[in-house]
């Protein structure tokens, strides 16, 4: 179960963005990818989501070889929250979430699909936005709508590219507890996060990405050690012990 990535390499037609990446994302846990801007985090998520095609390496999701799955089979297995999103037409929140059902729909979504969309909207806690035009929402509200869309899709693995960006503190806390809920109901969540403190407070497992390669941990080394973070982000940081992990302070 979970996601298994083996010797995955990728380039956009120029320099390699990912070079022989190998790691495991344990099933039923909240895993977080950390790394600098441009280290290949978003590309990695897109590859696992099946958005980008890859030639070298292997990706297995819940034991299925991603290469052998059709677009709609992938969608039933993996849900993906893209980083930026701005549609042209002012669809209502309900209609946007309903598009998450595409891999189940023949021509037009039925009653069951509408129910699933409503459930997802309630679960994220945005029922009050149901009939609002998506284009008129704040960045944070849009983020929640797109997360509801991922949930309506009913995937086993949820990939989130910076899900906390644009969210205020209360929505951040709400989303993190929602992620915890999803994980305890058996889903696998893999997210790219920019804020190491949130990552270390809430994540179960960590994938460290540096210059398109996995930065492996040495013996006894932990992701929240200041030396590890200095190496990963190329800046000086100090850490304060907090609970059984650490808080990161940039200096």
């Amino acid at each position: 179960m979970g996601v298994t990535v083996r010797e995955l390499s990728f380039d956009y037609g120029g320099a390699e963005v990912l070079q022989g990446v190998t790691f495991d994302v344990p099933g039923g846990e909240f895993s977080i990818i950390l790394g600098k801007n441009g280290s290949g985090k978003s590309t990695l998520l897109k590859l696992i989501a099946g958005i980008l095609p890859y030639r070298q390496g292997h990706i297995f999701v819940d034991g299925y070889d991603l290469k052998r799955l059709s677009v709609s089979e992938k969608a039933r297995l993996v849900g993906y929250l893209p980083q930026f999103h701005a549609p042209v037409f002012p669809f209502t929140v309900e209609d946007v979430v309903l598009t998450g059902r595409a891999s189940f729909v023949f021509a037009v979504p039925g009653r069951r699909d509408r129910e699933k969309a409503r459930e997802a909207i309630e679960r994220v806690g945005i029922s009050h936005l149901l009939h609002r035009p998506y284009t008129e929402l704040s960045g944070g509200e849009r983020q929640l709508v797109m997360i509801a869309r991922v949930l309506a899709q009913e995937p086993n693995v949820v990939l989130l590219d910076e899900p906390l960006s644009h969210l205020d503190l209360s929505n951040q806390v709400r989303l993190l507890s929602l992620i915890r809920q999803l994980v305890s109901s058996g889903l696998t969540v893999l997210a790219v996060l920019h804020e190491p403190n949130i990552a270390f407070l809430h994540g179960d497992a960590f994938v460290l990405l540096k210059d398109g390669k996995i930065r492996t941990l040495g013996r006894g080394e932990r992701p929240w050690d200041s030396a590890t973070l200095q190496d990963l982000y190329d800046v000086a940081v100090e850490t304060l012990p907090f609970r059984d992990r650490a808080l990161v302070v940039p200096i």
Partner: peptide
Amino acid sequence: LFMRWRMNVISLGDEEAKAVGLN
């Protein structure tokens, strides 16, 4: 008419359509 709902999905963007299972 058969394609009318898929037009909604497609008009959200290519990545967004692919993510939910439409090519």
